[in-house]
């Protein structure tokens, strides 16, 4: 099956990048390429998913990702229902099976799920007939973010294979870093994680990445520099001493960016902490493709909805 182009995804769900084959990733990116065009038309809507229902189940706050999914759903003419339960009594203590039963009463075709705990979409996928799309689970995966990141890289640099991609920030708690490591590894890029060891997962090499404890060494000759949001409030005070010191040693400044290739892209999944992980001059600079990432996110999410929108035959189990 090496050269043969895949024509469909194998699972009814998209729970992560880990279970995907390179051919499936390719298919999603190629499909997104054609869908990007819809945003440039006078009428930014196609009737493909008319009469189909998407539940956006967000058990953790998120404006950007939910917004992006909603735009994608509406452009495909799906009916959308938003179910946000972050922090309320609903999310705590309600079992996944109860959640699943409640949702299935609305007969959705898709459930887009954001959950604070790793593995929740994987469990839900085995309980319901609807297609589950993981919009971020705990510290595990954020597959649509990694796909839109790869899509952005491919559009700007023409390829993924052979790229050197530096990902810096709170890697330990980052599902974005993990999904990117899986995806880029499968597509033949080299990923470098850069963070102090206190922000690095144990045995990070397991993910097939290079591990750097200083930003400078990780930046040398990089094609892409992806900065992750630093959330000190989330971490207590033990992982690093101060935001000032963090920026001093790990912030992406114009000087440090010089270490990367001249045409290197600067990416960030947002929201940006200016002056914490990235200097404003870099975030707004000519190499920044941060706003492209937002646009591309819609096309990627449309592609996934389209590719998973086949009929309800025998549901294949999520792997």
């Amino acid at each position: 099956m090496s050269n043969e182009r895949l024509k469909s995804l194998r699972s009814k769900d998209l729970v992560g990048i880990a279970p995907l084959e390179p051919g499936e990733i390719q298919l999603i990116l190629d499909t997104a390429e054609e869908l990007l065009d819809i945003a440039r038309r006078p009428i930014k809507k196609v009737p493909t998913l008319r009469g189909r229902t998407v539940v956006n189940l967000f058990m953790e706050p998120s404006t950007r990702t939910r917004f992006s999914f909603e735009v994608a759903e509406k452009r495909l003419s799906a009916d959308t229902l938003n179910f946000s339960a972050s922090g309320s009594s609903v999310s705590k203590g309600e079992t996944l099976i109860d959640t699943a039963r409640n949702l299935m009463a609305m007969a959705p075709d898709f459930i887009v799920m954001r959950h604070p705990n790793s593995g929740a979409p994987h469990r839900l996928a085995s309980m319901v007939e609807a297609s589950i799309i993981n919009a971020g689970d705990g510290i595990n995966e954020h597959p649509t973010q990694a796909l839109l990141d790869a899509f952005t890289m491919r559009r700007h640099l023409g390829r993924l294979e052979g790229l050197a991609v530096t990902i810096a920030g709170d890697i330990r708690h980052s599902r974005v870093a993990r999904s990117n490591a899986y995806l880029l590894g499968k597509m033949g890029a080299t990923v470098r994680f850069a963070a102090p060891a206190s922000l690095m997962p144990l045995h990070a090499e397991t993910l097939g990445v290079e591990v750097h404890h200083r930003l400078e060494s990780a930046l040398e000759g990089a094609d892409v520099v992806m900065m992750l949001r630093i959330q000190r409030e989330r971490q207590g005070n033990m992982n690093f001493p101060s935001l000032r010191e963090y920026f001093d040693f790990f912030g992406l400044t114009p000087e440090r960016l010089e270490l990367a290739k001249p045409e290197a892209l600067v990416m960030h999944p947002g929201p940006i902490n200016r002056g914490v992980e990235i200097d404003s001059a870099v975030a707004d600079g000519s190499r920044s493709v941060i706003l492209d990432q937002v646009t591309n996110g819609v096309a990627i999410r449309m592609a996934i909805l389209y590719l998973l929108s086949g009929g309800h035959g025998e549901p294949t189990p999520a792997s």
Binding site: S118, G138, I139, N140, P201, L202, H203, T206
Partner: peptide, 15 residues
Amino acid sequence: HESEVSTRIGLKGIP
């Protein structure tokens, strides 16, 4: 358990 496996499957580990 915190290990290569927890890093791989994205669950918080206990060392």
